[in-house]
């Protein structure tokens, strides 16, 4: 323990428009251990996605710092509007955004193309991953010919071939229907665990958070702060997210989390509008 790969220290962020300032994140601090699967849950619109964008470096925090321990020296993570300064992070968006004018294969190598890494061994790796995730047969198809789950897997490969240390997942399953969602989330969870990557998952689905994560952070309503920090320990025979929904502790965690989140919603609803 206590081998953090990522340290978030006192992050504040506000959105500015001419009508005024909307504080989104307020003094957020937490650490992520190497190899940990962290879920962040919170009421909708509380700034979860903002937090991921700040961690990735798409948005620059107004105060605080993000430390990324991968080299012996502490190295501050990306600080600029344009990303790519921190190549050790991979970001998966809510929708797959596979381009219709490219085949699945061409979509998957998009990241390599942008980073000028189309080396033979990387391409071999792509082929191998396509085979592993049952997409090789479809590599010359257009995205519209694939199911939602297959598209999301292709999107994951697109992120993974860049070899990130930390994966940031921004509700990557929320656009899928319930059945696909269960199987894709378990697929993706297995892929992430088997490669030993660190992952931060944003979700508003509590059962998903419990079944996938090692630890859950609950965020308060806007301006978001970290409300509580739940480590999840499930006694399980096998480690699949589907089985974990049947673990004896599952219901207890669910109720505790539900209470935290609904308290939050209640406060939010009773706050008089200005």
């Amino acid at each position: 323990m206590n081998n953090p790969i990522l340290e978030i220290k006192d992050i504040c962020y506000s959105y500015h428009t001419l009508k005024g300032e909307t504080p989104a994140l307020s003094h957020i601090s937490f650490q992520v251990e190497k190899g940990e699967f962290l879920a962040i849950a919170g009421p909708s619109g509380c700034g979860k996605s903002t937090l991921l964008s700040v961690i990735f470096g798409l948005l620059v925090p107004e105060s605080g710092e993000i430390l990324f321990h991968v080299t012996p020296k502490e190295m501050p993570a990306s600080r600029h509007q344009t990303a790519g300064i921190c190549p050790k992070m991979g970001y998966m968006l809510q929708h797959d955004h596979l381009f219709e004018w490219r085949t699945i294969y061409q979509n998957v190598i998009l990241g390599l193309e942008i980073n000028h890494q189309l080396t033979p061994d990387k391409i071999d790796r792509v082929t191998e991953m396509l085979k592993d995730y049952d997409l090789y047969k479809f590599k010359d198809k257009k995205p519209s010919e694939l199911s939602g789950g297959m598209k999301q897997r292709a999107a994951l490969i697109r992120t993974l071939v860049l070899d990130p240390e930390i994966l940031l997942l921004d509700e990557p399953f929320s656009a899928l229907d319930y059945q696909t969602r269960l199987s894709v989330s378990s697929d993706i969870c297995n892929i992430i665990r088997s490669t030993g990557k660190t992952a931060i998952l944003i979700t508003h689905d509590l059962s998903e958070a419990i079944s996938l994560a090692d630890r859950i952070l609950v965020m308060s309503k806007r301006p978001a702060t970290i409300k509580c920090d739940f480590p999840i320990h499930l006694t399980l025979s096998d480690d699949s997210p589907l089985a974990s929904r049947n673990a004896p502790e599952y219901q207890g965690y669910f109720n505790k989390l539900w209470k935290e989140i609904s308290d939050e919603n209640y406060v939010q609803n009773t706050t008089p509008l200005k």
Binding site: A83, G90, L93, L110, I114, N115, R158, L162
Partner: peptide, 9 residues
């Protein structure tokens, strides 16, 4: 945004 997340300019 996807392009930026893949490290593009």
């Amino acid at each position: 945004k996807l392009i930026y997340t893949l490290g593009g300019k």
